[in-house]
Design a protein around this nucleic acid. Structure first.
Length: 998
DNA sequence: CGGTTCACG
DNA sequence: GACGTACGTGAACCGA
């Protein structure tokens, strides 16, 4: 450390706001390739790396030609600022820092020391107060000061001897949305409308929602600036408040004078802190190259290590890494549950995981997660949703202020309003932004005059859409600003149509799904009621329903603002809660690896769509129509009367009433049951009519659900069919597909398979279908640890034949197909939570016989009964079961008094970990697929997921290269989080259509 | 809008 | 010992 030297005229003091820098660096790091963000032992280091780069540059080159003579890196000591003593809610609703950032706080300080500097921090004071104090002392000594920060709260310090420098994306090649810049008096005037000395007065009136400074309700920066300019300062204004003409404003100022004074105290920086480290001690070092290299090597920052070594003429290999920065292996796990640690330690994406453990090990990581959740909950309703006043943005200037606010906050809740639920057909009508609870706006773009019959007339008071979107794009694409949405895949698709990406993003619907899957739906209205105790304005309330329903474009703008801004506000509040809960409940790895990455993946798949051959479908429709007509005539003849063949009620009456066929069964509602199983039974007795009904039903089903309906889903712009995948719809973690459902395209019958030939590859391309073989049985073999099953999968033996062989003692060679079929049914039954009744039904045998099979099965595979019993007990004790990757499936009815309901839930709880683990595996494969294909220089793209199958489209010439890449990603999907005890196998085929590829 | 049926995994 | 059943989906159609 260099010797102290008094600051004097001509010196240049650099004051770096370390705390705000950390957050910036973190969000920036989130946008780069994940492997740069972790050390080889999964310690998250991305923010530290960016911090070191800038620190190095500052020491070496200075800023804007000025090199520092004195340099202080200043941090917030803790959250217990003296401001909390004045106003307990100060910074109260700050979300907790991202989990991956937490272990980096102490590393930042280590970095500062390694560069030969002293991190400066003082209890009770924020970094800003220390900066203010150093600033005053330096100016009094006649030196110049550069404050390195982007925090607007520091702007009050600017004066002739003080400038601010915003490193923003400074040394990145990033686009020019936020160039690095010097902030002087002119820039402060521009932002606050007053000179720096009066900034605190403006902030006292306008408040600051990110820090929870209350201000005076109804007064924003603009009004505040006007008032301060008119009256000179805050005290004069408050003294003469009675003179103000606008009634509401006058009253608000009179009522809230004290609040304004408190606010001023909160924003006014203290510049007479008793400094523990005198300014004179902070002499800028010549770089301590050896110390820096030891640190950088320990962090594994190779590029910067090399650069510094070169500059200093040192051999980096000769310098030992600083091993004190290694976390001893025994220290990490802390008190985390063993299961979580096991998942965590190995997850590649899961720096997050390493973090959960790290947090426990670091005493200075902030309040414990559970307390944090309570704090967030308490703060959430500080500004009730009901009374929040939302802003309608009617000018570009206004929009720019909100966008700047989002950049400052580093996060924004975002929501689009459109004319359609189909994102790819929807027209954008407006969007809303929320920056803090109660602070939200709506930006109308395409609201039309309802009275204008020609529909062209845009209502006045809206921002020109093209220009608004041009302003919005840099925000939505900026890596340092987190975009928060409720079902943000929809908004991503809508914005994608405008050529705008949304990244990075978080989704409250998915957070809720991870936290509370099985405990209710994850729609926003319900989440708001459940967690915020607030019922938001319903969509139908603004658009009406049924015949009177209007397009959102016709909703009056004030109504639209109330609705849309509230949605963004609610989304933001939910995010704060869920973010804290994910940490507290140990669900960060599940969210980060199984949910968050899937948003972009599915958006791409949906946008890609799949090509269909309409000619094939129309020909099939014709064939089916003929077949159905012929069958219908025969059915009427056999019945002796015409009736609606599609009516189960009429059919039941004819079969079991008029014709008096015995052995009918009734459904829950007392109607005659006429399902295929019943009709098949009757057909087996030699009856003609039921056979024809079954055939008729099959044909009409294929016609109405597929061949007739699919062409109607072709998007006119792309000429392809775009399904919508739901990520948060099932109780097990599976996806679902709708409009159209492309996960139930026929395959089991020959007639049905013809429909698959209509799903085709684009010209010059092929479809590739890759599916997991027996994935659920393999998962079962893994979780229940069944040695015979494991061995069979290891050896690649026919699993159903093996089961039959074990149970009935017959050799696999030359096995009776009927015996194998029974074993297969039992295997599936096991996965479904077997019952004698169900198995008997499936096999058409007696319950006694099926019960004997099950007994036999459990004798041969006792591990499976143990697994089932353990799973049920687990569910009863916790109310949920977990997949092998830690996804929770809640079953609150597990302890139901109703025996039938209870056994139903027990079967669900047995099935869920198996089905859900398989779903997790394919999700992991999907999350990695695009990067793997791109890494192999392949342009193949994923189009569909059908639970255990992925469908791709690839240029003909790369099909052979793509298939092994796809299979490898799928087969290795559980790793490295888990190594299954059984191998996974994937079969991949290619062809011009889906039928042949499958 | 609930019930029934049937397409898929 | 009663109770209705295989697990998970979405779409079409009927009939109130």
């Amino acid at each position: 450390m260099p010797a102290p030297r008094p600051v004097q005229q001509g010196d240049h003091v650099f004051l770096v706001d370390g705390s705000s820098f950390i957050f910036r660096a973190y969000f920036q790091s989130m946008n780069q390739d994940a492997r740069y963000n972790y050390r080889s032992d999964r310690l998250p280091t991305g923010a530290v790396r960016l911090f070191c780069n800038v620190l190095h540059k500052m020491v070496r080159e200075g800023v804007m030609g000025n090199k520092p003579t004195h340099l202080a890196i200043i941090f917030d000591k803790s959250e217990e600022s003296f401001r909390k003593e004045i106003y307990p809610d100060y910074k109260a609703h700050r979300p907790p820092p991202p989990a991956e950032l937490v272990p980096q706080f102490p590393l930042m300080r280590d970095a500062v020391r390694a560069f030969g500097l002293k991190p400066v921090e003082q209890i009770r004071y924020e970094a800003d107060d220390l900066i203010a104090t150093y600033c005053r002392i330096a100016c009094e000594a006649g030196a110049d000061v550069t404050i390195v920060s982007a925090d607007k709260d520091l702007m009050q310090l600017i004066r002739p001897c003080v400038v601010m420098f915003d490193p923003a994306s400074g040394d990145q090649k990033a686009k020019g949305s936020r160039p690095e810049r010097i902030i002087g008096e002119a820039e402060v005037m521009e932002k606050f409308g007053v000179p720096p000395a009066k900034v605190v007065d403006v902030q006292a009136l306008a408040g600051d929602s990110t820090d929870n400074v209350p201000g005076v309700p109804g007064i924003g920066v603009k009004t505040a600036a006007q008032l301060i300019t008119d009256y000179g300062d805050l005290e004069t204004l408050l003294a003469r408040a009675a003179e103000i003409k606008q009634e509401k404003r006058r009253q608000s100022l009179i009522d809230n004078a004290e609040l304004a004074r408190i606010s001023r105290q909160l924003v006014k920086l203290v510049d007479d802190v008793q400094l523990e480290v005198p300014l004179d001690d902070l002499v800028a070092p010549g770089l301590d190259a050896r110390g820096a290299i030891a640190f950088l090597k320990a962090m594994e920052f190779n590029t910067l290590t090399r650069r510094i070594a070169e500059d200093a003429g040192l051999d980096p290999a000769a310098i030992e890494p600083d091993e004190t920065l290694r976390i001893p292996p025994g220290e990490a796990p802390g008190g985390a549950p063993a299961a979580v640690v096991a998942v965590a330690v190995a997850t590649p994406e899961g720096g997050a995981v390493a973090v959960a453990t790290m947090e426990a090990a670091r005493p200075d990581a902030g309040p414990p997660p559970a307390r944090r959740v309570e704090e967030v909950k308490a703060a959430l309703t500080a500004v009730p949703v009901d009374v929040a006043a939302y802003e309608t943005v009617g000018s570009l200037e206004q929009l720019e202020r909100w966008i700047a606010g989002a950049f400052d906050a580093g996060l924004v809740a975002f929501d689009t309003e459109t004319t359609s639920l189909d994102a790819l057909q929807a027209e954008l009508v407006g969007f809303s932004l929320a920056l803090a609870p109660g602070r939200a706006c709506y930006v109308p773009l395409g609201h039309r005059d309802k009275a204008d019959l020609f529909g062209a007339g845009l209502l006045p008071g809206q921002v020109p859409a093209a220009e608004a979107l041009a302003r919005l794009k840099p925000l939505l694409e900026d890596p340092s600003v987190l975009k928060i949405g409720q079902n943000i895949k929809y908004d991503a698709l809508v914005m994608g149509e405008q050529g705008i990406r949304i990244a990075p993003q978080d989704d409250t619907m998915l957070m809720s799904y991870v936290l509370d899957g099985g405990l209710g739906s994850h729609g926003m209205d319900e989440l708001s009621e459940r967690h915020l105790g607030h019922k938001p304005i319903a969509y139908s309330q603004v658009t009406g329903t049924g015949k009177a329903r209007i397009s959102f474009a016709e909703v009056p703008i004030d109504r639209a603002t109330a609705y849309a801004a509230e949605d963004a506000d609610v989304t933001l509040r939910l995010w704060q809660l869920f973010k804290a809960r994910l940490v507290a409940e140990g669900m960060v790895p599940v969210y980060e690896t199984l949910e968050r990455p899937l948003v972009a993946v599915l958006a791409r798949m949906e946008a890609a769509g799949i090509m269909i051959d309409r000619q094939i479908l129309s020909r099939l429709s014709g064939d089916f129509a003929q077949g159905a007509a012929r069958l219908e005539a025969e059915i009427h003849a056999l019945a002796g009367e015409t009736f609606n063949v599609g009516s189960p009620k009429q059919l039941g009456d004819i079969l079991f009433g008029k014709m008096g066929i015995p052995g009918g069964r009734k459904t829950a509602t007392g109607q005659w049951a006429t399902g295929a199983d019943v009709l098949e039974d009757l057909a087996a007795q030699g009856l003609e009519l039921p056979r024809r009904i079954v055939d008729w039903r099959q044909i009409t089903k294929l016609k109405s659900t597929y061949t007739d309906a699919l062409p109607g889903y072709v998007n006119p712009r792309s000429g392809r069919v775009h399904t919508s995948f739901a990520l948060a719809a099932t109780t097990t973690g599976r996806l679902s597909s709708s409009e159209p459902n492309l996960q139930n395209i026929p395959v089991r019958t020959e007639e049905g398979r013809k429909i698959r030939t209509a799903f085709i590859a684009a010209p010059g391309c092929k479809l590739i279908s890759a599916d997991y073989s027996q994935i659920e049985l393999r998962v079962l073999a893994h979780v229940a640890e069944i040695p015979q099953l494991r061995q069979a999968f290891e050896d690649g033996i026919d699993i159903h034949a093996m089961t039959a062989s074990e149970m009935f003692g017959v050799p696999v060679e030359g096995m009776d197909p009927l015996v194998r079929r029974r074993a297969k049914a039992i295997n599936f039954g096991i996965i479904y939570g077997i019952s004698a009744f169900g198995l008997a039904n499936q096999l058409g045998i007696s319950r006694e016989e099926s019960g004997a099979y099950i007994k036999k099965y459990f004798e041969r595979f006792p591990g499976i009964r143990d697994y089932m019993d353990a799973t049920k007990a687990d569910c009863r004790a916790n109310g949920y079961v977990s997949t092998i990757f830690g996804r929770k499936c809640h079953f609150p009815a597990i302890n139901s008094k109703n025996p039938s309901e209870r056994s139903f839930v027990e079967r669900q709880s047995i099935n869920a970990p198996i089905q859900g683990s398989a779903a997790d595996i394919i999700r992991r494969a999907m999350a990695r697929m695009d990067a793997a294909l791109a890494g192999a220089k392949l342009s193949a793209r994923m189009l569909l997921q059908v639970h255990d199958e992925l469908v791709f489209e690839a240029p003909q010439e790369e099909v052979e290269a793509a298939m092994p890449v796809i299979a490898a990603v799928m087969e290795a999907a559980p790793e490295p989080a888990l190594k299954l005890r059984v191998p996974l196998r994937v079969d991949a085929r290619s062809a011009g259509n889906w039928e042949e590829a499958h």
